[in-house]
Design a protein around this nucleic acid. Structure first.
Lengths: 142, 142
DNA sequence: CAACAGTTTAGAATGGTTTTAATTTGTGAA
DNA sequence: TTCACAAATTAAAACCATTCTAAACTGTTG
């Protein structure tokens, strides 16, 4: 079993860190488990910090911030910018978009495979498109 | 002259404030001129504050913030969320999208008329779409 | 085991934004 | 015009998510 190359999102925390060339410290291992074992979801630094505390992991908020940024730089996480109040990190790193509930701050993924955007002008000379973000802002209950 | 209904984006500062039911104070009038006379552009509170000072307008930064929010609530401005470092306000309130230069922080409008987005799922039950934002993130020179 | 770079941390600092509480200003009534 | 009051402005303090600092700790490699 596991003879075929394992998709990155299924790798165990240790293997992920190794691949990202990040030293597997207690804190990074614990945060990686909290981030990647439950499947796709969105966190803020504060939320992840609370989850870590709830799980009995001894880690500082500063390390949570450091780790989120290191994971993002390594391509393990994606930053989602939806409001200026706080920064969301997304464990889903495939091309996709978001519903954003403006009232509650909740984010829901929209699979990018079926979305087709036409009529966009091409990028200005010399610029490279690093990403196209589509955010559908929702107001109202739920 | 001026017998036909004037498009809102052409109204003089005074008329705009009247329409928005905002008392036409010196500060609001001056800021409205700085915002709406030059045509479509993007500002941060800090930038508008500096423009006001350069123009000899006596206004505090707190009032700039207040005014930007009041204008936004009144539909005279639109907030553009592209990074968590600071809030941009857009004097173009028609449906449109943005190029965002991640290096310089510059924003460029993309006319929304030609853009067609297909394959989006419908909004979750009970939710109302308040807006669809498309942000094309650019890295590289310019 | 030694040594060093890499990591974590508490606490301080930062910086955009909001709040506070006092003052000033616009407006409508008399 | 003047009065009175609500609305608006302001300087300064407060806020708060995030980053920085510099000291302590830890993982790795020889």
């Amino acid at each position: 079993m596991e003879t075929q190359s394992t998709p990155p999102h299924r790798l165990a925390a240790l293997a992920r860190l190794r691949d990202a060339k990040l030293r597997p410290t207690k804190q990074r291992l614990a945060l990686a488990k909290l981030l990647f074992e439950p499947g796709d979801h969105h966190v803020t630094a504060e939320i992840l910090f609370e989850q870590a505390q709830a799980a009995g992991v001894k880690v500082s908020l500063a390390t949570v911030y450091n780790t989120l940024h290191q994971f993002t730089t390594a391509g393990l996480l994606r930053e989602v910018v939806v409001n200026s109040a706080c920064t969301y990190f997304d464990t889903n790193i495939t091309g996709h978009h978001h519903f954003f509930f403006e009232d509650s701050g909740e984010l829901i993924d929209i699979d990018g495979a079926n979305v087709d955007i036409r009529g966009l002008p091409k990028a200005p000379d010399g610029a490279r498109i690093s990403r196209v973000d589509v955010i559908i802002r929702l107001s109202g209950q739920e």
